[in-house]
Write a protein that binds this DNA or RNA. Structure first.
Lengths: 111, 111
DNA sequence: CCGCATCCTACACGATACTG
DNA sequence: CAGTATCGTGTAGGATGCGG
């Protein structure tokens, strides 16, 4: 099929946007790169995120298979979030975003 | 310490999201990689985009310095959109999205 | 052909309070 | 600590029509 299809149904850009789009998902994933984190740690590490959004986004990330939720069933509760293999596949994506942001700000200075 | 600062003010992820976020900007940019395009060509190459959104997003892309708008001042009008240098800097980003989408769908098959 | 002006709706996102 | 539940709002995105 022809090139027009590129942006159509299984367009990788649209797929990625569906999985990682929105204001918070990539920020959450980026915090999990280094180590697994508890909810409270995530909240503390991401300025301005509300608890509702954090939980809500974590839920969708778990459902889409990017994040693993581990409940240790203790009292008081201990729940740890970590990246799955697919979740780790966002690493180059975030790296590319970092590169782009730097290139963009560099360009601002030159003008 | 959880790298608290990483995600704060000049966080590259937030910067990139501000510049390229939303449903359409990256799709538009990706169409301009190969060659410059007129509005009508862009509209034809991106399924489901409304003319309003296309024009609106192009405007912000021009304002943020990612796209160059060239008006040939002819009758009938001929206006061509092309990538600036910074606009081209999104290429690795989109490539990373493509890679991720493929990795994700691959993972789906394996399970 | 290219673009602007309205009007409108849906949902992403937020504030707050409450539970095991 | 880790969640639900509820309610409210801003704005991204869409439909339509007009104009140079």
């Amino acid at each position: 099929m022809i090139e027009k299809v590129y942006v159509t149904n299984r367009c990788p850009i649209r797929t990625t946007l569906e999985l990682t789009g929105g204001k918070w998902k990539l920020l959450i994933l980026s915090q999990l790169f280094q180590k697994s984190l508890r909810l409270s740690e995530l909240k503390a590490s991401i300025p301005d995120i509300s608890e509702k959004m954090l939980i809500q986004e974590l839920k969708t990330l778990v459902e889409s298979g990017m994040v693993l939720r581990t409940n240790y069933g203790e009292v008081p509760p201990r729940v740890v979030y970590s990246l799955t293999r697919v979740g780790e596949a966002t690493k180059p994506l975030i790296a590319a975003m970092k590169d782009f942001a730097e290139a963009y700000e560099q360009q601002l200075k030159e003008r």
